[in-house]
Every structure is written in structure tokens, then in C-alpha cells.
Design a protein around this nucleic acid. Structure first.
Lengths: 351, 351
DNA sequence: TTGAAAGCGCTAACAC
DNA sequence: GTGTTAGCGCTTTCAA
């Protein structure tokens, strides 16, 4: 009924318990030296008042917030949702909380990052986005660990964890060749993404070496744009019989267009391959052949890197790690002449 | 090359600029009175040092962190991912950051919440989870705004925003009756969820009034469990010809089983309806009839409630708001005798 | 073991 | 307009 009061402080508890305020602090500090008797008294008083230690004040003095800033784009893409969930679990286990920034998919998240740094996060994890060189320098100067997930930089000062974009895209190219396709197409995500560029280079490179040209479109990792590009490709003069999309999300869009608008039988008339292996790729209605990015492994590697840097052993800064995946074969592609291995619960391509 | 130093403080800037530390503070406070000349000096010094105001210190003194705690379960369910994205956007616009807690889908998130409160978040948004009565009391005592999203409580002190669970489920029942179905089934999410109970009550109630019994299973909002239940129902003695699933995610699982394992033609042999209208429900491969929960509207209502409570006008605490949706008709159901309205971009049922 | 005292980096009166 | 002075709620020496 009374007006909303302010939360009780350690002082209030101390007064009630008849001890000093520092005694209260000790009571809530794991390894502190405090007698059993006073701890009881303090405990009781704290309970009675509903006292909870103010972690804001604590981080001010400790210079550690146990909060880690996570910048991540469009959660509508299930790949990012899965990554965030994995990060959330791994960071919670490591004793960290997440300050979340849902970055715009395109463009630099600098203003947003600026804010994060002001909150004195203990580290930064950037999913599919990168630091401006200015900010990178600043982070290094103040010793703030940063790791980029699913993106690399030329800057050697920031660490990164990525899937095997090169190996994956190359495997996909070889796989489609083994399926005896003739007319290839590639639907790119963002022109600027290091990840996307690596996939494209490997795909085009491998097919180029085999003397195959590749049609190309850019869909900015957006579902609707991917539908548009697929529509245009399939409605064109010399339509592809094999499309590699730089993400599952776009591949599923293409799949829908091919089946619904062009009446194609997927896996016979055309093969469509994605990248990521999001949950939906395994749905029977979708059944998308795709290169798996092991989200959980990537997340835990990123968190391990952060922890290493936080440990301050100097290790871990500027490292770049590649987490290998698997080409999972499902119904959206023709059957290749060789190389498919049945693991029971799924089939993979290992030529 | 040098060892990692600590970030510069307002003091350092003041020293360099030859002004007092409070001048520095004023320089970074929007409406403060400061001469153009000193602001320049401070600005320059700050830039040179790479100074950034410490928001932790600021929140300590202001007793406002501009951080809002968001508790949300399994991001693997696209409904939650979409909700988080909406909240993130709305809260950013309102000037807040998100401290994220990915709660376990089942069970009470109390320990997690405890932590959040210690971080002195300005408010709490709980998606699909609820507060223990003890914590609810505590929040009210310290005047901390709390709103539950997609869940209600009997406790009148905490506000909530929900979709129209009753109206939606009733509409689905009437719709399936209009499709002249005979053998109904319901796949529940969590037994404990207020939302799920409301859907079930309305569905069973409406069909009961029409003299129709309803088979029932519980799948805990989990994809695999929903597949199991669907398998069991369809393989049983008197298989249903109409299934309502308490979420799209589960409905899509059922859809896959019905089509792939039982060879049923969806929309003819059987109708399957979901709830939420996640993005995938609209994919041509899925084409799920479902009751839409307007995620964006729900998010912005929740944020508005928070802001009202923060404004301290006393308004908004203990309010419960229902956001109406639409029954979106797609290919997973038979065509009803009447009531379908074509809006051009989609079809809805409004009898 | 315990309390007193000095801050962590900042904002907010209050004089000047 | 500007500096001085108190704190915000806590941790951490340092003596006692």
C-alpha cells in the first residue's frame, strides 16, 4: 500500500544486524573471513529486509561486469536464433550474462557498439558483423576481448571463429558435379560478408576449374529477395539445374519458388543446396541438402576464446579458428554417383 | 605494444582539458549549462584520450540502468525468436538495452530472475514464463515494473499481454466444424501454461457444445514430442481427421508425420491447424492454417506498459491486455462451406 | 575476525 | 558558467 520505496542497501542490513557494512559485504563474498555467528545475523537481517547485493555497484569497483555484449543480426533467420541460444547457454555456464544488440543485417553496427562499450561489458561477441578499424583499435587499447563469429577480418588483432566456408562450398561444388549437373547458379547473401565471399570464391573456383560457368545473383540473405532471384533465374533463357544458395534460409525460398511456381520436381529436375543446416532443413517438407555449420561448436569455441583472453594470459587475441562441418545429403538434390555415406540418422557426403 | 591499460575517466579528461571533472560530466549531459568554449576543450581532450562515459557509474547514481531484463524460452521456436526481435527493436527505440535470459522452457526461472534483479534492471519482461508469488511481491515492493508476455497470472499485481487465446481457439473449432470434420484431436503444449490452458478450454468447449469429443495429447511445445503424439494418434484405432496443435511448431511436426509417414493428403484427408503464425507457416512447402498472434503488436503493447509504469503515473500495473489476431487460412485445411475472406495477400476466416 | 576509511567513476546540488 | 562537495552501493586495504 505504501509508496514504492528504494531497495535496501548493505547499510540497512548492517544497521539491522548491528554490524558494520563491510561485514555485510563479507557475508556475500564467497571466500571472505567471517564468523559463523555474524554471518547468521547478517543473513537473517538481509532476508528480513529483502536485501539483494547491487551488482552495478560491485562491477563499478571490481571493474568487471560479468556481462558480455552480443551483437547479432536478424533473429528471423533461424541460424542466428540457434547461435544466440547456444551463446546464451555457454555464457551462462561460464558465469556471464548477455547484453543483447540485434544489429541491422547490413551496414556497420558501430553506433550500437559504442553504447555497448559504455556499459563496460567484459567482452564483445560479434555475430556476422565486424568492427570498424577505429573501434577495433580502441578495444585493443583498453584490453577488451573481442571475437567475431561467422566473420573474419584482415585485422590481425581481433579473433574469429568461422565455419569451413571454403571447404564447405568446395564440397558442394564437387557434389553437384558428381550429380552430373550442367548449368550452375549461385545465390549470394551479402556482397560485403567475408563469409559469403569465401563461399562464393570456393564454389566458383571449383566449378571454374571443371570448366563450368556459374550464373549469379545477390539476395542479401533475405527470404523475399531470394525468391525474386530464383524466379528470375528459373524463368530465364537457360535456367540452372543446380543452385547453391549461401544460406539455408535463401535455399528454402528458392525451393518454394522452384516447386510451386515452376512445377519442378526437386531432386530430379533441379538440385538446390543451402548452407548452415538450420533446423528446418531437416523437416520432411523441406529436406534440404546443405553444409552444416556446427552452431554449438562454434559458440563454445568463441566463448572459450573470450575466456582465454579474459584470463589475460595474452593467448587468444588475433586467433582465427575454422570449425569444420559436414555436407548433409537430403532430398533436395539428385543422387550423386558416389560418396554418400549413410550414418543411420542422416546421410553425409564424404568422397 | 604496451600492456593493456584501463579506460580513461572523466578525471583524466578534466586534467588534460584543464577544467573540473564536473565540466566533463556536463559536456556529456544533453541539457547541461556549459559554454561553447569549454565544451570544445573537453570534447577535444576526450577524443584524444578515447574517453567514453561509464554508464555503470551513471546508473549507480541515477538509480536507472536503462537496461531491461528479458526472460524468454527456447529461441529454436521461431515464435520466440520473432518476439525477441520485436522486443529488441521496440526497446531500442525507447532507449533501453536488453539483458537477456534464455529461460528453460519448463519450470520456473526464479534463480535466473534473482540474478537479473541484482543487476538492477529497470523493468522485467517475461515471455511465456511467470513469476513466483514471492518474487512478484518483491518486485512490487521495490516498484519494479514487470510484464508477462504470452502468459497471465491470477496475481493481480503483475501486468500481462496475451494474444486472443480464447477467441482464437474458438474460431479454430468453429472453422473445423464448418469444414465438416468429424473426429477431432488436440495437441497441447505445456500443461502448466495459462496460454495453453485457455486454448484448450476454448477448443474443447466449443466442440463439446457441438457434441464432438476430442482426443488429446501433450507435446510440451517440442517438435519431436509432437511428432510422436501425431504418430500415435494417426496410427490409432479411430484416427482424427482434424488436429489442432497449440503451436505452429508442433503443427508443422504433425504435418510432416501425416504426409510422410501416413501418406495423407493434407487439406483433404486431414486438416491440421496451428497457433502463432510463425514465418514458416507461410512457406509454400508448409502452408499451414493458423491463428495469428500479432507479435509486433504484442511486443509494442508490452513495452508501452513498461514505459507507463516507469513513468510512475501508477497506471499500468496489474493490467491485462488481449491482442486480437486473425485465423489465416492456408492449404493445410479443408475448405469450409463459408466465411473465408480473400484479402489478396492472404485469406482469413471471418464467419 | 572485524570496523573505519578510502575509493570505483560518475551526477547533482550548492556556492561562487 | 564553473568548481567544490557530497554521495550512489559496494569492495578493499589497513589497523585494531
Amino acid at each position: 500500500m505504501a509508496a514504492p520505496r528504494r531497495a535496501p542497501t548493505a547499510h540497512d542490513v548492517a544497521a539491522l544486524a548491528g554490524v558494520s557494512q563491510s561485514a555485510v559485504s563479507r557475508c556475500f563474498t564467497p571466500g571472505a573471513s567471517i564468523s559463523e555467528e555474524t554471518r547468521q545475523r547478517v543473513q537473517a537481517a538481509a532476508e528480513q529486509l529483502g536485501y539483494r547485493p547491487n551488482l552495478i555497484a560491485r562491477s563499478l569497483i571490481k571493474r568487471r561486469s560479468t556481462i558480455i555484449g552480443v551483437v547479432i543480426p536478424g533473429l528471423q533467420n533461424p541460424f542466428y536464433a540457434a547461435m544466440l541460444e547456444a551463446l546464451s547457454a555457454d555464457l551462462a555456464t561460464a558465469g556471464y550474462r548477455i547484453l543483447l544488440f540485434n544489429a541491422p543485417a547490413r551496414g556497420t553496427p558501430d553506433p550500437v557498439l559504442d553504447e555497448m562499450l559504455n556499459y563496460r561489458v567484459d567482452a564483445l561477441i560479434l555475430v556476422s558483423s565486424s568492427l570498424s578499424s577505429g573501434l577495433a583499435d580502441e578495444c585493443q587499447k583498453i584490453g577488451l576481448p573481442v571475437v567475431q563469429l561467422n566473420r573474419t577480418t584482415e585485422r590481425s588483432t581481433v579473433s574469429s571463429v568461422v565455419g569451413d566456408n571454403h571447404g564447405g562450398a568446395e564440397a558442394i561444388a564437387r557434389f553437384l558435379l558428381a550429380c552430373e549437373h550442367e548449368r550452375f547458379a549461385f545465390i549470394a547473401g551479402l556482397e560485403t560478408s567475408s563469409t559469403g565471399k569465401a563461399r562464393e570464391a570456393a564454389f566458383l573456383g571449383t566449378l571454374g576449374a571443371a570448366g563450368k560457368p556459374v550464373a549469379r545473383g545477390v539476395a542479401n540473405y533475405a527470404f523475399e529477395e531470394a525468391e525474386g532471384i530464383a524466379r528470375q533465374m528459373l524463368g530465364g533463357a537457360n535456367p540452372p539445374d543446380a543452385i547453391f544458395c549461401a544460406s539455408d534460409h535463401m535455399a528454402i525460398a528458392a525451393l518454394g519458388v522452384a516447386r510451386t511456381e515452376f512445377g519442378l520436381t526437386i531432386g530430379r529436375d533441379i538440385s538446390i543446396v543451402g548452407f548452415d543446416d538450420i533446423q528446418m532443413a531437416g523437416w520432411p517438407q523441406i529436406s534440404l541438402t546443405t553444409y552444416r555449420q556446427p552452431v554449438r561448436a562454434m559458440s563454445s569455441r568463441a566463448v572459450a576464446m573470450i575466456e582465454a583472453q579474459l584470463q589475460g594470459t595474452g593467448t587468444g587475441s588475433g586467433l582465427s579458428e575454422v570449425v569444420p562441418g559436414d555436407l548433409v545429403v537430403r532430398g533436395s538434390t539428385r543422387e550423386p554417383a558416389h560418396g554418400v555415406i549413410d550414418l543411420g540418422y542422416e546421410r553425409v557426403w564424404r568422397p
